[in-house]
């Protein structure tokens, strides 16, 4: 009886701690190819991001999600989740810092720019493509390969060919 009570207690604690149930949806996302970006294609659930702006420490209050206020472990994980569940971040203003990575598609001739962050072991990288605000910047204003950058823009998904990509559009360099 005692063992059964312990089991029941454990079950209760676990299921209370897991939170409310949410619908799962299949999503295939492929980020824009850049030199050091990990490509991830997996199923991802839909979930609502809860960001309490009032409790952010030294975070930029002008954006919905300030990755520059997070530790490197958190940044890598958050970017991973953004790639896995882009619908939850669509339209949100993002601020992030990292290294600029440039990729040119040999077939189309298009050049893509990304802000890359690394995990704590420095062996894995995640990145988000960014496009500078056309009203403020020209092609010459884009940063050089490897340059440390801080960008602020709007998270958005777009389709190119048969794949969906994510980008931070209308970005400004800080």
């Amino acid at each position: 009886m005692k063992k059964l009570n312990i089991l029941l207690l454990l079950l209760t604690v676990t299921f209370l701690g897991c939170g409310k149930s949410e619908q799962a949806a299949d999503t295939a996302v492929e980020s824009a190819s850049v030199e050091s970006t990990v490509t991830q294609t997996e199923d991802a659930p839909q979930e609502e991001e809860q960001i309490d702006e009032a409790t952010q420490v030294e975070a930029d209050s002008s954006v919905d999600l300030d990755l520059t206020a997070l530790s490197s472990t958190m940044v890598y994980s958050e970017v991973f989740n953004m790639m896995m569940d882009p619908e939850s971040y669509e339209g949100k203003s993002i601020k992030m810092d990292g290294n600029c990575s440039i990729y040119t598609d040999e077939v189309t001739g298009e050049t893509y720019y990304a802000c890359i962050v690394q995990d704590a072991t420095q062996c894995c990288s995640q990145g988000l493509e960014f496009v500078l605000d056309e009203n403020e910047y020209s092609a010459e204003d884009y940063p050089a390969e490897g340059e440390e950058i801080v960008i602020k823009g709007t998270f958005s998904a777009y389709t190119e060919g048969e794949y969906m990509y994510i980008t931070i559009k209308d970005s400004v360099l800080e």
Partner: peptide, 24 residues
Amino acid sequence: SSNVAGDVCSTLFGSTSILTLTQE
């Protein structure tokens, strides 16, 4: 994937695996 070494490193050392779990 395009980064086999990174995937292997992440699996071997679990640098952020626990922080990238889905609800499933």
